[in-house]
């Protein structure tokens, strides 16, 4: 197996790691950097639990090799909050009961933040269509959609 050294910025911190070329980005984040907030739910890019932000675009980190990300800037769920304060979108999920088991939630929140960047005031339909790539088995989505609507308002400050 070929090894390669990559430089990658995660949540504002630079990392330089020598890795196997077949290492997936999600495993790099979870196993090498030990940020375990991003989850693996399907391995095949359907469920969205592994979503991270790559230059404000949401990216399913289970379907990208870490070496493809050499030089990239990545934000994970751990990097969105400001110190001890939750991100407004996280607050919204808590207030609106937007999660049950919480396993899909990091991906949902990353996905929601990417949506709001693009559309600061999304309609319910916008939100539902945007969530096509994020699966949740607990909530039936209703409260997730409400959380994102409320989160969008909160993000306006």
């Amino acid at each position: 197996m070929e090894n390669k050294t990559i430089k990658i910025n995660i949540n504002g911190k630079d990392f330089e790691e020598n890795i196997n070329s077949n290492l997936l980005l999600i495993d790099f984040i979870r196993e090498k950097i030990k940020l375990t907030g991003s989850h693996i739910g399907c391995d095949t890019s359907q469920c969205g639990s592994c979503m991270v932000l790559y230059n404000d675009i949401c990216l399913k980190s289970c379907s990208v090799l870490a070496i493809q990300m050499d030089g990239a800037k990545i934000t994970t769920i751990e990097g969105i909050s400001d110190g001890d304060n939750l991100h407004p979108m996280q607050e919204s999920f808590r207030e609106c009961h937007g999660l049950q088991c919480g396993f899909c939630t990091p991906g949902m929140i990353i996905s929601a933040i990417a949506l709001i960047k693009e559309k600061p005031t999304p309609s319910e339909k916008d939100i539902r269509e945007h969530l096509e790539g994020n699966l949740c088995r607990c909530t039936g989505y209703e409260n997730i959609v409400k959380s994102i609507s409320a989160g969008a308002e909160k993000m306006k400050g």
């Binding site: 399907c42 095949t44 359907q46 469920c47 939100i127 539902r128 269509e129 969530l131 096509e132 994020n134 699966l135 949740c136 088995r137 039936g140 989505y141 209703e142 997730i144 959609v145």
Partner: peptide
């Protein structure tokens, strides 16, 4: 064998009860 074959509903398929 995958979530592309075993179709789990997304936010678009579930109305509010």
């Amino acid at each position: 064998g995958t979530f592309a074959d075993y179709l789990v509903p997304t936010a678009n398929e579930i109305p509010e009860a």
